[in-house]
Nucleic acid binder design. Structure first.
Length: 773
DNA sequence: GCCGCTACTTAGTATTCGGATC
DNA sequence: GATCCGAATACTAAGTAGCGGC
């Protein structure tokens, strides 16, 4: 790294004025500027909403970092509340002319700049592989590319294949073949069941009965299936009017509502205890849509939502739900059986000669839209979906699902280039909703497998890519620099790509490419660190991302440049969007998109953490704790948060009580052991000898139980506000976990529950203990 | 190159289930 | 048998990304 680029940076990029911004981005700008004031207010509200969560999130991140003994504990997450408040104040102040707090002195890019992959990146756990190859030899890489197939062994026989015409078909075919070439797995013949652990028999049964689609060849003509038959969706039950004694009051007076108006009112009443119904936006949207369902008489009478009293309705529903809980065993069993019958009838389809489980076979019932975060459409009426709204997708030669009597489907089509069975357009955003197969299905599993293979290919070339974007930081072209810095963030911080969103249609959330000036702050010096970037924005689901990261000087200088002459509401990367970025990534590696980095970094982190944290000698519970910690490291990297369970404090207390009791029991048993030893010393007889042995074993057993409880408590505490599920299900190559389980003889069901074992059956079957991501 | 549309994955929360405990 | 509570499952919103048309 040479030091002469700092000045050149600003010269080269003096063209980086806001008026140079991309056309498509300009379009939004003016509007945004106008909205900015409003936004600020909203932001404030949002932040205060998420503050409690963020605070403990930080606490947890800190804890995690400390635990992982990161080499540099410098990443400050502002643990103290006071600091939080200060920050809030700062945010309230208008971001003034510069977002750079204090001008950076001209310094040489020298030893101050950290070695990139040793730098403390906030999820402190993230460390990078140093080498493309070598460090992570993949023993399977050189094995046969093709899947093994034994047609006699498996019942799968493709039905009549509808051929695809023209160029598209050829193109698709080519793509598919290319994918096949990329694949570098040779599935192993059979999972060793002996290590399946405690319920080994059950696990064995599970695998034996399952169709091993991963041992068969994939279709190469671009079609997703050859034959598809299903029974269609389960529609929402019709509205049942309230009994006469349940009343609605307006302005203190009883008002009988028409059925359509009453139905919408019940949606609101059912949510009365929820915070949603106190939100102005929610009430406004609800009221507007409710009026559309009212008769003209109702419309003239009901003019103010604040005069509406839904309490009796709400009480009625609460009583009903209570009554459901109080039902007799028989009644409950009846309901269960009926549900099971519906599941059996509608919950499965036949796809290419195999019965497959459907993921969601029920049409979403009507209700009030519950957007996440500060959603402008919250409270709007989600209307009832009728058969006339529904498109059915199935084979021409299958038995088509029948619509309810007297109705018809919107359309029945036979498109085997898609995986969905049923679709409809919802009225809130106008987006299409689908009924698709369960994650355990072939069609989902193959895609999942492919996803991890792409991530593994990234592993092979990530060093080249990193070198490239580092080089691009120095580019003469602004767009190249922006692209390179954005990619650095995506790689280093596992940020999402950040597609553009239509304003006013959804909550104001961002990802990497859509970051705005107001979302970052630059600190040339902070505490003992240089070139610190502070990120503070709302990401997917309006989950706050807050982080501070020291970056290399060149990144810092570039960021300063990107911020020049911009307003807080302007795009940080005004020459970049996800489409541009992904096009670039595609050129670097076939199939590479921004989200592959998240998969790659998550999986590689798990693998590294497992290597680091697992001690061969520790007990099974300790190993499980290590696994969960590795999983947690990934969840933190990906910013997967959850609201602390409502019962958290109580459940921790309960566990602590158990621990205390166990400790008492332990010391009592130890005393008994001591007594037994003394007695044995005196008498030297067999009976006393036996007693010593018995007590010794008891002490040992209680010690183990205590340790297990302590592990559980630690795990639970560390997990308070971190959601492990999302990363486990979507980002972590299951073969890493499977290999780990097999290597250390940990029962599979301690890591994956039944559903997860079904989803990852392919990985459980094919990965051996030597698997390397 | 932009835009709208479509298909699919990823996400957090609400509800239900089922085993442990009283 | 009732109650409690954590785990599993259901639900559906909110992302990513590709494609085709203009």
């Amino acid at each position: 790294m040479s030091g002469d680029h700092g000045e050149r940076d600003s010269q080269v990029n003096s063209g980086s004025r806001a008026n140079d911004a991309h056309k498509h981005k300009d379009k939004h700008k003016e509007h945004r500027r106008k909205e900015h004031k409003k936004d600020k207010e909203r932001e404030k509200a949002k932040h205060s909403n998420s503050e409690h969560r963020e605070h403990s999130e930080k606490k947890h991140r800190d804890k995690e970092k400390e635990r992982l003994k990161h080499s540099d504990g410098s990443v400050d997450r502002h643990r103290e509340k006071q600091k939080e408040k200060d920050k809030e104040k700062r945010r309230e102040e208008k971001v003034k002319s510069s977002h750079v707090e204090g001008k950076p002195k001209k310094e040489k890019e020298n030893g101050h700049a950290r070695e990139m992959w040793n730098s403390p990146s906030p999820p402190a756990i993230k460390s990078e592989p140093e080498e493309d190859n070598g460090l992570y030899p993949s023993p399977k890489h050189n094995k046969t590319l093709k899947r093994e197939r034994d047609e006699e062994e498996f019942e799968y026989k493709p039905q009549k294949i509808k051929t695809e015409n023209g160029k598209k078909a050829k193109k698709r075919k080519q793509e598919y073949e290319d994918e096949e070439e990329e694949e570098d797995i040779k599935p192993k013949k059979k999972t060793k069941d002996k290590k399946a652990g405690a319920d080994g028999k059950k696990a064995k049964k599970e695998t034996e009965e399952k169709w091993k689609w991963w041992e068969e060849e994939r279709s190469t003509d671009g079609s997703k299936w050859k034959f598809l038959e299903h029974k269609g969706p389960v529609l929402a039950p019709p509205y049942e009017p309230l009994p006469g004694h349940v009343r609605f009051f307006y302005d203190g007076k009883h008002l009988r509502l028409s059925a359509p108006a009453e139905e919408v009112a019940t949606f609101f009443a059912k949510m009365l205890d929820h915070e949603y119904t106190t939100k102005e936006m929610f009430r406004k949207n609800f009221y507007k849509d409710w009026r559309k369902e009212m008769t003209s008489e109702e419309k003239s009478k009901i003019t103010d939502i604040n005069k509406c009293n839904f309490t009796e309705m709400s009480e009625y529903f609460k009583a009903q739900s209570e009554a459901r809980k109080q039902m007799s065993k028989d009644e409950k069993l009846k309901i269960k059986e009926e549900n099971e019958r519906i599941l059996q009838e509608y919950g499965f389809c036949v796809m290419d000669n195999h019965k497959e489980r459907i993921g969601n076979f029920r049409i979403e019932p009507p209700g009030l839209f519950r957007g996440r975060g500060d959603h402008p459409k919250m409270g709007m009426l989600k209307r009832r979906i009728r058969p006339e709204d529904i498109i059915i997708n199935c084979s021409k030669d299958s038995k088509h699902p029948k619509p309810p009597q007297g109705t018809r489907w919107k359309e029945v089509r036979h498109d085997n280039k898609v995986t969905w069975l049923v679709s409809w357009t919802e009225n809130i955003q106008g987006s299409i909703k689908y009924i698709m197969l369960n994650p355990s299905s072939r069609i989902k599993g193959e895609k999942d497998w492919q996803k991890y293979e792409t991530a593994r290919r990234l592993k092979k070339c990530v060093d080249r890519l990193r070198a490239q974007y580092r080089e691009d930081w120095k580019s003469k072209e602004m767009r190249v620099r922006q692209r390179a810095v954005a990619l650095y963030f995506i790689d280093k911080l596992a940020l999402r790509a950040g597609n553009e969103k239509e304003e006013g249609e959804t909550a104001d959330t961002v990802g990497c490419c859509s970051l705005r000036v107001e979302h970052i702050k630059l600190y040339p010096k902070m505490d003992d660190q240089e070139y610190v970037v502070e990120f503070d924005f709302l990401g997917k689901d309006s989950i706050r991302y807050y982080n501070k990261m020291p970056v290399e000087k060149r990144v810092f200088k570039n960021l300063q440049l990107f911020l020049e002459n911009k307003q807080p509401e302007d795009d940080l990367f005004d020459r970049l969007n996800t489409s541009i970025l992904n096009k670039h990534l595609q050129e670097l590696m076939d199939g590479l998109t921004a989200k592959v980095f998240r998969t790659y970094n998550a999986s590689i982190t798990l693998q590294q953490q497992l290597k680091e944290l697992t001690s061969p000698d520790e007990s099974i519970p300790a190993k499980i704790l290590s696994y969960n910690r590795a999983n947690r490291a990934v969840a933190i990297l990906c910013n997967h948060q959850r609201a602390a369970p409502k019962t958290f404090e109580k459940s921790m207390q309960n566990l602590q009580t158990k621990i205390d009791e166990k400790q008492k029991q332990l010391s009592a048993t130890r005393k008994q052991l001591k007594g037994a030893k003394t007695e044995h010393k005196a008498s030297h007889d067999d009976r006393s000898k036996k007693m010593v042995e018995v007590k010794r074993k008891a002490v040992q057993r209680i010690e183990e139980q205590l340790m297990k409880l302590q592990m559980q408590a630690t795990d639970r505490e560390e997990n308070k506000q971190i959601a492990l599920g999302t990363s486990k299900l979507n980002y972590l190559d299951p073969r890493i976990s499977v290999a780990w389980v097999k290597k250390w003889d940990v029962p599979m069901e301690k890591i994956y529950n039944k559903t997860q074992r079904e989803k990852f059956a392919w990985a459980i079957d094919m990965a051996e203990e030597d698997y390397e991501f």
